[in-house]
Design a protein around this nucleic acid. Sequence first.
DNA 1: ATTTGGTGTTGTG
DNA 2: CACAACACCAAAT
Length: 294
Amino acid sequence: MNAFAPTPECVTDITPSGEDYAIVKQVIELITLDYRDQPSLENIADELGQSPTQLQKVFTRWAGLSPKAFLQAVTLDHAKRLLGHEQLPLLETSYEVGLSGPGRLHDLFVTHEAMSPGEWKAKGGGLTIRYGFHPSPFGLALVMATDRGLAGLAFADDEGGRDACFEDMAKRWPNAEYVPDQAATAPYIARVFDPDRWHREEPLRVVLIGSDFQVRVWQSLLKIPFGKAVTYSDVARDIGQPTASRAVGAAIGRNPISFVVPCHRALGKSGALTGYHWGLTRKRAILGWEAGRA
DNA sequence: ATTTGGTGTTGTG
DNA sequence: CACAACACCAAAT
């Protein structure tokens, strides 16, 4: 059960226990399934065998958003609104708005640097990657870092999912050396999920380790302003390969630094939420979380 | 509503 | 070096 790594005790406990996450997850699933019926808090609590007040409290603490607000935020209508409340905003224009609009919340102030082609070909050879598991608002998170910055962020579904999660990440750079080091990764977690620190403090350094094409796609995602979304074909157009939307989808799916590189802000052309490497439920949750803070 | 055909890149043999 | 697999999309049933 707990054979993989010692449970983190150095972590600041702003996050709910795994149990809470499990409950919240059910709530989210229920809401997103039945949002058409606009279920009341009572209905939901009934369905899950919880008391309404308790449920309200847990959910709000977890998401910074009441269940009611979340319900509204998460309808398809919301997803479509993200794409642009006027006509479909082409990526260019949303960049304009995102970059030049006064006081507009831009994205995380992330400075990114890609690895050189040589380093990429080495598949992580000669690279030391420190990693650790930490609780996060969206479940247990696996953080990976090199001395040049944050390299990977993934989500594990439950305790048993740790190994699978680590495998999934580690096979991306098979020749790297992996060292468990909670102390090194803890600072990243603290910053990444605290929106107040995104633009004031010094920028977050990340390293994008991937093929040339993938890196271009990820850089394009980083330009999407907070609280906005784009379609896969928008991204394809932005990187100068307008017919490559499918390839873009594949590349987005391999994004190693989830949440930081906002792959959750990529939607299908109709505004429908399409896939997510760590589960559609989590994608909805993240979008809802952002909607509550926009 | 569903199906079908055209896509670019990547991982595998 | 070919080939199947993809978090897609538009056009034709």
